[in-house]
Design a protein around this nucleic acid. Sequence first.
DNA 1: CGTATTTGACCTGCGC
DNA 2: GCGCAGGTCAAATACG
Length: 494
Amino acid sequence: MRFKLDSTKVEMEEAKEENRRLKSSLSRIKKEFEILQTQYNQLMVQHEDRNKFSSKGHHQDEDKEKISEREELVLLSLGRRLKSPVPSGSMTNNEENKKDFMDETGDDKKNDDHEKGSDQGIRMGFEYKDLSNPNEKKEIDHNQQTLPLEISNNNKIPSENSFGFKNDGDDNEVEEELLPQNLIKKTRVSVRSRCETPTMNDGCQWRKYGQKIAKGNPCPRAYYRCTIAPSCPVRKQVQRCSEDMSILISTYEGTHNHPLPMSATAMASATSAAASMLLPGASSSSSSSSVPADLHGLNFSLSGNNVTPKPKSHNFLQTSSPSSSGHPTVTLDLTTPSSSQQPFLSMLNRFNSTSSNVSRSNSYPSTNLNFSNANTLMIWGGGGGNRNEQYRAAYGNISTHQQPPYHHMIQTRTAGSSFDPFGRSSSSSTRPIQTNLDYVGNITHQMQSLPAETIKAITTDPTFQSALATALSSIIGGDLKMDNVTSNEAEKSP
DNA sequence: CGTATTTGACCTGCGC
DNA sequence: GCGCAGGTCAAATACG
């Protein structure tokens, strides 16, 4: 009994220490993010000035250019609401377009929390400022009518926060049926993972409603729907890979219209981000204009820069032929061996590339996000009742070296670089929170040490923004919640 | 007994 | 129009 008490005290002390480290990491991340944000804003201002200069003497096209310009004036805000707005100054009547994605409770304290957010530093999420007006949407519609997903930053569109649920769902179900993106097939996100269990635990609650033997695969395909909310439209297909039975392919479709458990937010963020990368605005080789993207509720600033597809390589992002179903599909591959040999700079080069040779024979391309994860069995979330359980479920059990998906994502993105942020094995980490924060912090920190041109290329690349936003949201969002929990617990503790 | 799963029937879209 | 395949429904069944 005495021993238990002592061990509990030791654990409490460790928790306090952990909490201190988290706070320190958080403040560092805040600073580094502000630097990044400042750089981005400066670039936006420069871009704006350049556009104005180049448009002199072209009054005939002035309106068009204004529209185009404002299409590009989309701010991807990682985290806290900015104290000072975008330097464009054109943000007026679209305040309501801001999507505050962090507030999980959605109660009346929301605004207050956001006001305090900068002080507390706990409001990580995505903020998308649409600087266009509804009339311009028609223009966009006209230009992008074959790709309605691009222009879904409509007020009517139920937004989803970084944790994968929509902000407000009064009429979401009805309105969603009328949305343009529903006129075409929904984007799917397929996750390949090594999993011994019949289904991957992603933190959500699923109810099986069907099973089919799909052609070309002797393994039956199981159909699940989300049961967290009765009206949730999210579906999931689970099927084992015919070539490797140990690989479980989980395909997600739709957007949760309800709050998700902590343990499910990682997957929700992953699917959102992955789907967003599929958007033509993010990956189209033909389009050079920025268009806002809102898929699965995640709003990113996406422009035409593309990522060169290199199928069957370990590139982080690949495009391949569309799925047989005809749905645009993003594949998150967590089954392949570590791509530590992948040069980080080559990825940056791809980020910086303004065009690519993507062959798009089909309007529904598939994108393959190849995250290295050779050893991890997929336990994305345990749906545990308390936050600690949820945390452990979502971010990996320390003792079993399970790691969160974004841990691997970031690790993949940094592992091949010429610098190793930590020089330690991620799987050997005994402090996953600290590790995750360190990764984020060091990414931004290392970026500052890069040449200015590289920084420019990185910070202005929407793909990077999307990926960074997702990573930050997933990791920090969860961690911050834990931070709160641990803070509260620490305060309560004697 | 309530809930979840199974499984055959049915619906729908697409290619020929 | 027909057949095929994917996807969904719903009654039957299993389970706790």
